[in-house]
Design a protein around this nucleic acid. Structure first.
Lengths: 141, 141
DNA sequence: TCAAATTACTTGCAAAATGCAATCGATCTT
DNA sequence: AAGATCGATTGCATTTTGCAAGTAATTTGA
């Protein structure tokens, strides 16, 4: 993972090189807000990701240190994906994207609710949810 | 042209459908932080965007209501691009991406300075820069 | 004044990424 | 033993990207 062949060292660019595509942040979203942890669950998202793209993105996110993959101890068939600390740190970005879209795009009112609630709860809400994610994803691994 | 053929009405998804690629937010970055307004300036970015991709992204961003394009009154050859209100509202997202990358990626220290300064200045700094952009891009067009 | 430079793009083409459907071997359920 | 379920992989068509070259209109410089 020591291959520094980035287009530039600009912070904005480096972020985009890791999660700047149409699918990666949706996977993160599903983990954070829908509690998804398994391949089949991600595959069933509203947006309809293809199985090969999903496999590719999960591998990339693991490579980037945003997710980890572990075998489910109970089910040998099941892999369980967890957020890392750096994955959990993406929440403020998601919250900000949500805010922008709720201001400027024709969002589904039902799907906008969690974001609205978070904004209504004040600036501590994001940090609170990050703490909860840390307990869930880092507490046990 | 009211074709709402989005993958879903989820706020995160809708944002990604507009600016979820490797180039769009870099153009916005160059407008916000480097004061670029002309095609040739965008073309000269560190990351090396191709001219056809740049033309495509500028057109998309104009379509999405994030930028406007106007003929330069002084130079008939020059087009001048401006941010709209909804384009300026992307600044908090950029600031958040910058923050994530400065925590988790090998950013160029020199390029990280403006972000660090913004964070050091406190939460009002983003709003202040947005106000400045509004004066520059919306004040006159 | 007129050739050279500059402007915002467009074009052609190869390479890479994406999307879709079918399939895989391993494991789990019944 | 049979079928369902798991996380993928494969083959193939379509779309997007990247690169180099070219375009027409305008502006600059000698």
């Amino acid at each position: 993972m020591s291959n520094d062949s980035f287009r530039s060292g600009c912070p904005i660019n480096l972020g985009l090189e890791v999660f700047g595509d149409k699918w990666s942040l949706l996977i993160i979203r599903d983990m954070m807000f829908a509690g998804k942890r398994h391949y089949r669950e991600f595959l069933a998202s509203d947006e309809g990701i293809s199985s090969n793209i999903l496999a590719d993105r999960l591998a990339r996110l693991v490579d980037a240190g945003i997710l980890t993959r572990a075998d489910d101890p109970a089910h040998k068939l099941k892999a369980i994906y967890s957020l890392t600390a750096r994955g959990i740190d993406l929440l403020p970005i998601l919250a900000q994207i949500s805010r922008w879209s709720r201001s400027h795009m024709p969002v589904d009112p039902e799907l906008a609710r969690t974001g609205e609630a978070r904004d209504r709860a004040g600036p501590g809400a994001v940090e609170a949810q990050m703490a909860a994610l840390r307990r869930l994803h880092l507490g046990e691994g």
